[in-house]
C-alpha cells in the first residue's frame, strides 16, 4: 500500500509485517502495513493567534488543506519533500510547535518564488504566511539562527543605514559573515577583493571582467564599493524606520 506524503510519517510509526493476524483474521497481503497513531501532548493556540493578528499572516485561516501549494513548490519537488507548506500551515494552526521544530532544518528554505501564493485556490498568501510562521518562531526563541535569516538581517541593516544597497559590499560582507577573512582598507574599512580570502569560484568569476578590460564597469563598481551609494534626505526617515523596526522587535541592537 502506498503511503501518501510518506515524509510526514516517522519511520518508527510504520509497522510492516510479512504475515499479520488481527483478532484471529489473517489480513496479510494488502493489509500488512499499519501506521501507528500519533500522540499529541502539547500545543500552543496562542501561536496561531499571533500569526492571524499580523497583517501579512491573517489569511492563514482560509486554508482548507488542499495541498495545491505543496504540489507547486519547487523546494518540495526538487529539493526535499520534507519541505511541505501545507503541512507547516496545518501545524502552525494547531500550535504543534515541537512538530514544527523537527522541521526547522528545512523550514527556512523557501525561495520566495510565490508559486504557492499564486495558485492557492483560497487566497491564502502562502509565502507570506510561511515567513510569518518563521518570524514568530524566531521571535519566541523557538528556532535557532538559520542562514536566510542572517542574510535578511544583514541586507535590511544595509538598507537602513544607507537607503540603498550595493552589490559588491553585499557579496563581500556576506562572505565575511560566512567566516572568510576579508581584507579591508585601513581608512574607509571597506572590503578589498582579492587581498583577503575569497572563495575560489568568486575569484575566477571576478577575474573575467578584469581580463576583458571593461574599465568602465570596474571603475563604477569599485567606486560604489568605496563610497556606498546613499539616498539623500535619509536621516530623518531612517529614524522613523528604526523606530518601527524596534517596535516590531526586528532589530538585534
Amino acid at each position: 500500500m502506498a503511503i501518501h506524503e510518506r515524509s510526514l510519517v516517522e519511520p518508527e510509526r510504520i509497522l510492516r509485517k510479512e504475515r499479520l493476524v488481527v483478532d484471529g483474521v489473517d489480513v496479510s497481503g494488502d493489509w500488512n502495513l499499519i501506521i501507528l497513531p500519533r500522540v499529541i501532548n502539547d500545543y500552543d493556540l496562542d501561536f496561531a493567534k499571533e500569526i492571524i493578528n499580523s497583517p501579512d499572516g491573517k489569511t492563514i485561516n482560509q486554508c482548507y488543506q488542499c495541498s495545491y501549494c505543496t504540489a507547486s513548490c519547487p523546494v518540495h519537488n526538487y529539493w526535499d519533500e520534507r519541505y511541505n507548506p501545507r503541512h507547516f500551515i496545518y501545524l502552525a494552526r494547531l500550535g504543534l510547535i515541537d512538530e514544527l521544530q523537527k522541521r526547522a532544518d528545512v523550514m527556512w528554505r523557501c525561495v520566495s518564488c510565490h508559486k504557492c501564493t499564486h495558485r492557492c485556490p483560497k487566497g491564502v498568501l502562502v509565502e507570506e504566511v510561511l515567513k510569518v510562521i518563521l518570524r514568530t518562531m524566531a521571535k519566541k526563541g523557538l528556532i535557532d539562527e538559520y542562514p536566510s535569516k542572517k542574510f535578511d538581517k544583514f541586507f535590511t541593516e544595509s538598507v537602513l543605514e544607507y537607503g540603498r544597497i550595493e552589490d559588491g559590499e553585499l557579496l563581500f560582507g556576506w562572505i565575511e559573515k560566512q567566516g572568510y577573512k576579508v581584507f579591508k582598507d585601513p581608512i574607509l574599512k571597506k572590503p578589498i577583493p582579492f587581498l583577503g580570502e575569497t572563495p575560489e569560484w568568486l575569484k575566477q568569476l571576478t577575474i573575467k571582467p578584469i581580463k576583458s578590460m571593461n574599465i568602465g564597469f570596474l571603475v563604477l563598481n569599485a567606486k560604489h564599493m568605496l563610497f556606498h551609494p546613499r539616498t539623500k534626505n535619509w536621516s530623518r526617515f531612517k529614524q522613523v524606520l528604526r523606530k518601527v523596526m524596534q517596535e516590531e522587535g526586528a532589530l538585534s541592537h
Binding site: 501579512d56 515567513k131 538598507v159 537602513l160 540603498r164 523596526m245 517596535e247
Partner: peptide
C-alpha cells in the same frame, strides 16, 4: 531608496511598507 527586495519583508512588515 531600496525597495527592500525579498529580504526586508521577512524582517519587518511595516518597515518594508514604509520603504
Amino acid at each position: 531608496n531600496c525597495c527592500g527586495a525579498m529580504e526586508s519583508k521577512n524582517v519587518t512588515f511595516m518597515g518594508t511598507m514604509l520603504l
